[in-house]
Amino acid sequence: MSYLLPHLHSGWAVDQAIMAEEERAVVIRFGHDWDETCMQMDEVLASVAETIKNLAVIYLVDITEVPDFNTMYELYDPCTIMFFFRNKHIMIDLGTGNNNKINWALKDKQEFIDIVETVYRGARKGRGVTNSRPDLQF
């Protein structure tokens, strides 16, 4: 399903994509199109892209082709999702301990939509860290 989503082929393109978007959140999937986990993730991403188009835009980045962010964002997992809003990295509290990204494949569309919505709302309100699950807040 990765072919349905736009790819970013250089670090510059990634930066531009993050900066150019003013009203929506930017969702970037770092990984490889051939990777199994990524395939699962892409499936979900591609199917919800239209649904969340008012909230967020989704890009795919091949971390071999564009290794610029590997160190910076610790991209060592097969599949990583990160959120940005107005050139700001949006962290999400998923209860995993790592608020920076989602480094596993989400298989539930609705869950993903919910997360994006939470990110969008939180980001709009200017929160750096959004809480995707209020029940996990202690």
Binding site: S10, G11, W12, V14, D15, I18, M19, V66, D68, F69, T71, M72, Y73, E74, N87, H89, N98, N100
Partner: peptide, 14 residues
């Protein structure tokens, strides 16, 4: 062009 720095991004260490 230095990716990331171009938009003033900072990474993180976890």
């Amino acid at each position: 062009y230095v990716a990331g720095l171009g938009r003033g991004a900072t990474g993180f260490t976890t």
